[in-house]
Design a protein around this nucleic acid. Structure first.
Lengths: 190, 190
DNA sequence: CGGGGAGGTTAGCAGCCGTTTACCTAGTCG
DNA sequence: CGACTAGGTAAACGGCTGCTAACCTCCCCG
């Protein structure tokens, strides 16, 4: 079933690609229209404004990340397994939607104030899932350290768009291994 | 000696801060002027254009990164020490100039064509320094893998601006440990 | 059959923003 | 002392861009 994507979704994915490549302000309304075969102001039949596109894009990413991450953690049997599942989840997301990940990293500042608040709240909750999971497997990390470590792992995994030299599976394996290793630096070489 | 910074440098650091926070297109010429106490078009006494500011900013970062990295590697006695030195160098840079690092990560696309070529060439050479160093300490990585790993480590270290919750020294220690651990995942738990 | 909504189109406006211009000071130096 | 320069100002211009307006055309459904 070819799951025909709604016009809105077509527009959002095209816009994400463009925003990722040129930045929010670097993309014109006409560019987005052209990318989906319609031209210019026709977009206003589907979105209230250009800001609204970015807003919807980022809130939907943030919700998907949070929900998926939470689900993986809840389904895990042990703390260790939870961490692996979380890493795998984020790696898959970053590899499957590099444009979305890039936009989420770079274009938070271009959001409208209420949108930014919403997105930040979602992101904070996602980070919190990570912080708890990390602290369960690496008890010697205090909370601020775990938070900083979580951000560092995000940076590591989200580097994906800048290095597509490996194929998907190798990349997933590499990133997962590196992420996991970076979080267990204290495995004493006995 | 209070090393009074030249006007040009004042402008560049102020502009870097603004570009990092709002993105290149999100900052007006008047904003930059205001940030250094002069207003608007006075900047054109010091720079040919707004693009020229970004160009000079990014080439100078890239040169500093490359030169410093190369120097550290050359000064190192062993491969292992070279890797540690390289990590330390990049961590120090990212912690001391978070704005510059952010601009370099996000605003490559806003460069003028010749500037982008120059910067990319410098960045490639810097990555190459990392790739060689990594391969000397982790021989089981082939070249593409080492390159991808280098990018991942950059992402890890450059995550600094998004998490200033720790003080400088703790942050440096954490990032260095994580970076090093991520690159030696094969320390078999004997 | 006939009318209304969904989804296009082009033309045009309004505002922003990078850049140029013309002008005005202080210093500096022959 | 007079002239040139470095560095600043405010005003104006021109192009780009987000958005609106007016209009057109299917398609569906009573």
């Amino acid at each position: 079933m070819a799951e025909k994507p709604s016009r809105r979704d077509q527009i959002l994915t095209a816009a994400a690609e463009l925003f990722a490549r040129h930045g929010f302000h670097g993309v014109g309304i006409d560019d987005i229209g052209a990318a989906v075969g319609i031209s210019g102001p026709a977009l206003y039949r589907h979105f209230r404004s250009k800001d609204a596109m970015l807003g919807e894009m980022l809130t939907s990413i943030s919700e998907r990340l949070l929900d998926g991450g939470q689900a993986r953690v809840d389904a895990a049997a042990s703390a260790d397994e939870a961490l692996r599942a979380l890493i795998g989840w984020h790696v898959d997301f970053a590899l499957d939607d590099p444009a979305l990940i890039t936009v989420q990293m770079r274009n938070l500042a271009n959001l409208t104030d209420p949108d930014r608040r919403r997105v930040r709240a979602l992101q904070r909750r996602y980070v919190e899932v990570w912080v708890e999971t990390i602290r369960r497997t690496v008890p010697e990390f205090d909370e601020p350290t775990a938070r900083a470590a979580a951000h560092a792992v995000f940076g590591l995994i989200n580097s994906t768009p800048h290095s597509a030299h490996l194929d998907r599976d190798q990349m997933a394996a590499l990133l997962s291994r590196m992420a996991l290793a970076s979080l267990t630096p204290v495995v004493v070489t006995s």
